[in-house]
Simulated scan of single mutants.
Amino acid sequence: MPQQQPNDNLILIGMPGAGKSTIGVLLAKRLGLGFVDTDVLIQTREGRTLQDIVNSDGPAALRQIEEQVLADLKVTRTVIATGGSAVYSAKAMSALAESGIIVNLHVPLPVLEQRISNHDTRGLVRQPGQSIADLYQERVPLYARYADISIEVDNERPDQVVEQIVGAISR
């Protein structure tokens, strides 16, 4: 088994609706890397959707499962699209930071509010009654803390965001 090289993964973090999965696939194709969506890994491992986990076991359970999946993730030369709540786990973020460059896709709140219409079916890790704006205020400082690179994403096309990321990592 080849030894993992430091910093050979690209890890995308950001709010739900930031485009991590969409941009991640395009970025992986552009750079000739693998692609992993950790929300899909969680759903596959658990045999149920993120929303089902939140509904039956609560947001804390999803966060705990997510932490374990991220801490156990052993990939190289891969773009990793994380769930929006990954930044709640220092353990998971430390493991990710050791494996690559963390890229925060920062989207202004009004754009996110336009993009996210399925609050109650998306599997969002949030407390009852917590709005997208509340989540945004809570998470934005965490994304900034863990990011090696932050890309401002407004209404750019996904291919434009990919080019911004490629430019930022090659500097």
Rank of each mutant, 00 (worst) to 15 (best):
L124D: 00
R145A: 11
S56R: 15
I23E: 04
M1H: 12
E113A: 05
T22H: 13
R145F: 11
A71C: 12
A144P: 11
Q127M: 09
A18V: 03
V69K: 06
D37I: 04
A144L: 12
D120F: 09
R157E: 15
L62C: 00
I149R: 08
E98T: 07
Q114Y: 11
V40T: 13
D57N: 11
S89A: 09
D134I: 09
D37C: 07
I65S: 02
R171I: 12
I23Y: 00
L96W: 01
K29H: 12
P59K: 13
P59Q: 14
Q64T: 12
E67W: 02
T76D: 11
I65F: 04
L10E: 03
L96M: 09
T78D: 06
I169G: 04
V40W: 09
Y146P: 02
G167K: 13
Q5S: 15
S56E: 15
E113S: 03
P141G: 10
E46N: 08
V111E: 13
Q5T: 14
S89G: 03
R122H: 08
L112D: 01
A60V: 13
I151S: 11
Q160T: 07
G17E: 06
G58R: 02
G17K: 01
Y146N: 01
I165S: 08
L12C: 03
S99A: 14
A86L: 05
A97D: 02
D37M: 03
A61P: 05
M93P: 00
Q4S: 14
S117G: 15
P108M: 05
T49R: 01
T22C: 13
R77A: 11
I102D: 00
I53D: 00
N118A: 15
V140M: 13
E163V: 06
L135A: 03
V161I: 11
P2I: 14
T82G: 07
V87I: 14
S94W: 02
K91R: 12
A18L: 05
G47H: 05
S117C: 08
I151Q: 10
D52A: 14
D72W: 01
G58C: 01
N155S: 14
D148R: 06
S56A: 14
T121Q: 13
L96H: 00
I169N: 09
L26C: 07
L142C: 05
Q137N: 10
V69T: 12
V87L: 04
R30G: 10
L26T: 01
I169P: 07
